[in-house]
Design a protein around this nucleic acid. Structure first.
Lengths: 166, 166
DNA sequence: GTCGAGTATCTCGATGGCCGAGATTATCGA
DNA sequence: TCGATAATCTCGGCCATCGAGATACTCGAC
């Protein structure tokens, strides 16, 4: 069936947009179901993931930065960290250099949950990626990188519209 | 700099995973900031988007399906719809065939907000897509489609682990 | 070295979204 | 007509979240 060039592009564009939306919605569903399965709130799981990412990168996350990532006030972060510390998922670690700071590290229980969350996800991702060549994955990466950059700009624009004085 | 084939793949894989995570996090930030800018909760904006999608597809969404999408109990959905109806964003519409059902349609205020949310996003997306050929976008779409399918399977698996009796 | 401004975290009271069991209204098949 | 099922709504209770103020610490200026 014939389809003019513009139309093909327009359809593709819409499909990809739809893909991205479906991906985020499904990701939220997985988070919700997994959290409930482990007796956690959705926020708690997100926090656990953020803590893990911090350690992986060699820069443990602080409560302040955690609050920014999760869109939480300082009070909520304290309560959140208290919860996760009480259940043995993470622990607080005072910085020796700047003793105002607190580093969040995952404890045994947190590492266990994180692995259980990411391993099957990684396995599924690998299966998908096997069906693409290096060059194709390069294209995907280039696309996603640009999308993220664009989204981040937009995020900053919306935030600026909210607090014009900053 | 030389890099063996396996390593290149491993790096690419990790980068793309990271891209996807960054994308979802940034999308949440945008939703949060935009919602606050319009005096809405995050859930309310998500609901508005879901309602709009339903109308676009010609199948208006019902409170029940809205609750599934947002992971909300029936009681929360009623409160949510009440809020949005009171503020003039959406309205309830009884189905004439099956009068148990309620269709959710957006009212003037809802349409206005939805457009204001999506237009700048669409503009930014277009800019990114202009820098890719049709074939490249086709690759991206194929990748995302497979990822979504895989995520959905995983979601169902996690949900099944939670309620083994269903 | 000490004062003040700035930064990071925590405390605490109030609020409001959310859950979940039960009630209500409607459809459908026997 | 009746029972089973489905979709939505009501209501009481809970808990995560907000936000202003308190606390603890750092750092530069004088």
């Amino acid at each position: 069936m014939y389809r003019p060039r513009d139309t093909r592009r327009a359809v593709l564009s819409g499909e990809i947009t739809s893909d991205l939306r479906n991906y985020t919605v499904d990701a939220q569903h997985i988070g919700h179901a997994f959290a409930a399965l482990h007796g956690l709130g959705v926020t708690d799981l997100q926090a656990l993931i953020a803590v893990m990412h911090g350690e992986r990168r060699g820069e443990p996350i602080t409560p302040g930065r955690l609050g920014e990532q999760l869109n939480l006030s300082s009070g909520s972060v304290t309560a959140l960290v208290d919860r996760l510390e009480r259940t043995g998922h993470i622990r607080r670690d005072r910085d020796t250099a700047d003793r105002r700071k607190v580093f969040l590290r995952y404890a045994d229980e947190g590492a266990r949950v994180a692995v259980e969350f990411f391993r099957p996800l990684g396995a599924r991702t690998d299966v998908v990626m096997e069906r693409f060549t290096d060059d194709e994955l390069e294209v995907v990466h280039r696309f996603m990188r640009m999308m993220v950059e664009s989204m981040r700009d937009h995020r900053d624009a919306v935030r600026a519209a909210r607090n014009p004085a900053e």
